[in-house]
Each structure stands twice: as C-alpha cells, then as structure tokens.
Nucleic acid binder design. Structure first.
Lengths: 114, 114
DNA sequence: TAAACTTACTTTGCCTTTCGAGGCATGTCA
DNA sequence: TGACATGCCTCGAAAGGCAAAGTAAGTTTA
C-alpha cells in the first residue's frame, strides 16, 4: 500500500499569507482577524471563522505564531503574534504569491486577438 | 435530506481564466495549452493535463468554447476557440481576479510593525 | 426582563478544485 | 529496438476552503 503524494493546489495558502501579514503588522485575535480581512480588502475577500481559526491553529502548531490569552470584559481573547519562524514563512509565501501573480498577469496582458 | 450548498473557494477558477485568456489570443489544442501556460508564466505556473483537459471539456460543455478536430501528422488535435459566451465569462473572471488581487495586495502593502 | 444581537472560540462534515499518475495510440530519433 | 515526444483522456486521492451549528457570555432594545 503506497501512499499517493500530491502537491497542494498552486494557488492555495493565501488565507495563511493574509493572516501572517496582518499579524506581522499588529497582534490580533481570531474574531478580529475575520473582520480585518474584510475591511482591509474592501469586502473583496471574506474569510469566515471556519477558515481563520483552523489556519491560526495550524500556524501555532508549526511554530509560526505564538498565542497569549487575555481576558477582556469577562471574555477571553487569544492574541496571536508572528514568531521569527513565522516571519520566514511569511517571506516565503509572499515570494510565492509574487511569482504566481506575475505569472497570471503575464497571461492576462498577452496581446489579444479579434 | 437537504443538500448543503457551498460556494467555490474564493481563489478558484484561475486555471479556467488562464485557458480562456490564452484561447482568446489564439486558437489552441490541449497539449499545446499545457506548454503555453508554462512558457508564458516563465514556469511560475505549471498546469498538468489532469487540469487542462477537464477545464476544456467543462468550458466546451457550457458553451464557452467551441472545438474543431484537425488531423496533423496522422495525429488528431482538438483546437478550441472562445465563443461570445466564453468571452463574457472571460471578462467576468478577469474582473473577479482583479478584485481578489487588489484585495490581497492591499493586505500585503499594509504598513509593517517592527 | 425577555428577546435578540454581538462578541469570541471551536468543530464537523461536505464539496470542489486541483493534482499526480497512468493508460492508450502514433510518430520520430538513435 | 528502445526511448522519448506528441496528443488525448480519466481515475483516485488530497487538501483547502466553506457554511453551519454549538457553546458561552456580554449588550442592547423593547
């Protein structure tokens, strides 16, 4: 029984990139991130909690984020910030995005027929 | 039994966009498209046949592409070209891509801390 | 004060897209 | 003859992303 190994889809990991980038700017908690993504992208991108929280947990697990709990108004918030490892990951993802974006752009800008 | 309806992932449909855009430039066949994507994107994006062919079939099925078979060197090539319907779809996808891209860009350009 | 909404975190289960790999057939080059 | 390129097609799996719902506590409103 051999395990079939597939690469992740070439456009994936953008939510991760966005989360890392926002957290590099400023420490935030999950629910805040959900709203920040909508606001900063002018509603162009809306990531629900079903996306954000799993991403946060994954990034924390692999050492890209560190978390600290903080009680505010009787509620608990989990604030995340980017570790040095996370900064490396952010740099790498940003570079990949740049390549992909430029690739797509060069297709879109290719001269049209008609 | 209720059917759960999920939206497509927000970044999806890029292969479709690329295929439509390349075919709007010039009639092509599947195998040629596989290589064209790699070349035009300078290897940044590599879509295999397992991606390209299903996309072509889907686009043909919904009227975005028309196909004509042509025998060359004893082999059969299926050339695809973009229909008016396909042009509309291309315009729509290009617009969506623009919005998403700008959204991501505005996150990436947000001022950094540190 | 009850209803309704917001904040805040978490998880489940599904669906779609994408992916690698393989199969088939012909042609060319060494 | 073997290896490699052309050209088409499809299967099975993985992962990523998604809506929805559950929990719980605070706030607003009627």
């Amino acid at each position: 029984m051999t395990i079939r190994q597939t690469n992740p889809p070439f456009m994936s990991g953008v939510p991760e990139l966005l989360v890392l980038r926002l957290l590099a700017r400023q420490e935030m908690y999950g629910y805040e991130l959900v709203k920040a993504v909508r606001v900063v992208t002018s509603e162009a991108i809306r990531l629900g909690e079903g996306v954000i929280y799993p991403v946060l947990h994954g990034l924390e697990r692999n050492g890209s984020l560190s978390a600290r709990r903080k009680a505010v108004n009787g509620r608990t918030r989990v604030y995340y910030s980017v570790t040095p490892t996370g900064q490396q990951r952010l740099d790498r993802l940003a570079g990949e995005w740049e390549r992909i974006k430029n690739g797509i752009q060069s297709v879109l800008e290719s001269p049209q027929n008609a």
